[in-house]
Design a protein around this nucleic acid. Structure first.
Ligand SMILES: [Mn+2]
Ligand SMILES: [Mn+2]
Ligand SMILES: [Mn+2]
Ligand SMILES: [Mn+2]
Lengths: 154, 154
DNA sequence: ACGAATATGATGCCAAGGCTACACTTTCTT
DNA sequence: AAGAAAGTGTAGCCTTGGCATCATATTCGT
């Protein structure tokens, strides 16, 4: 049945770029973004643990994320591989400079997303809950619009 | 080092319910939601293909999603397993009653999310892009707030 | 100081969701 | 009516991110 084109285009690498404005392009970008979500949450959490005067040890991280420590350790391995963290065995996890920067961006974005949801009238618990997933999909452009929106309110 | 409690609680099933208001509970809920995202996008897309007068065949679906047809076929297998779709070999995919209902809900939510982003001042392309990922994390409670927000604007 | 309690790390298992490659079926075109 | 073109399905491979289990390291409490 030779009706439509073929489906197997070249499908190059496409590192992390803007995404075509086609439906397929949007889905591809959404998948790319999703693949960063876990790293973002870990970075944000590790920074928070450090900021709260504590250490970021696998068990702490695991408990806060609701996963087993084995799962956390595997994710930490990925963080290290991606150059976002280092770890001293039995002594906890530390963010690299790049990791710190990611954490800072992610935290700011998280707070802004919650703030916008609240401003729209979303109840506090739902805002906190939904923001945990939504945040990762909020692009810089959208984030700027969020900031302008909040500024316009006060 | 026996400082903090243990991390391996019972961790029961937790089918799809409200989620504790703890940080771990929020992350758990976000993971549950994410595991539905793929099914939601497929259901929405299949309904759209049918609505647009066409058939929903693996290659159509794959092209629209930006994946290979093999990937689409695997996802369709999961849709069938979950009771959301049926398929007649070489004749396309069809949503069950439950699948149709899911598709309708997902489509309405998608549209509302885009509308809210636009209302906040997000440029059209970014709104379309970000909504593709955000939509899956918007709870019913939040969706209601979105509807009220839009109503209040006009 | 030493045993108990806890944390850590390693390993192996699983399912999801990508991919390529290849065989088969259907449809189109001549 | 073939033969070519396109779609479909299957199989096998990979990575991610869950899990449980076990061995080892550290720290606490007495
Ligand atoms: Mn998050
Ligand atoms: Mn967050
Ligand atoms: Mn989507
Ligand atoms: Mn959608």
């Amino acid at each position: 049945m030779p009706r439509r084109p073929a489906d197997a285009q070249q499908r190059q690498a496409a590192p992390n770029l803007p995404a075509e404005p086609t439906q397929a392009g949007r889905f591809e970008q959404a998948r790319r973004v999703q693949s960063m979500a876990l790293l973002e949450d870990y970075a944000e959490l590790i920074a928070d643990l450090h900021a709260t005067g504590g250490e970021a040890r696998p068990t702490d991280i695991a408990r806060r994320l609701g996963v087993t420590h084995a799962t956390a350790i595997k994710a930490i391995t990925r963080l290290k591989r991606e150059g976002l963290a280092t770890a001293r065995p039995y002594r906890g996890v530390f963010l690299t400079e790049e990791g710190e920067q990611l954490a800072a961006r992610v935290k700011a974005r998280h707070l802004l997303v919650v703030e916008v949801l609240r401003a729209i009238g979303v109840p506090p618990d739902a805002a906190e809950q939904d923001a945990e997933g939504i945040e990762h999909h909020v692009s810089d452009i959208t984030l700027q619009a969020f900031a302008r929106f909040l500024k316009g309110l006060k």
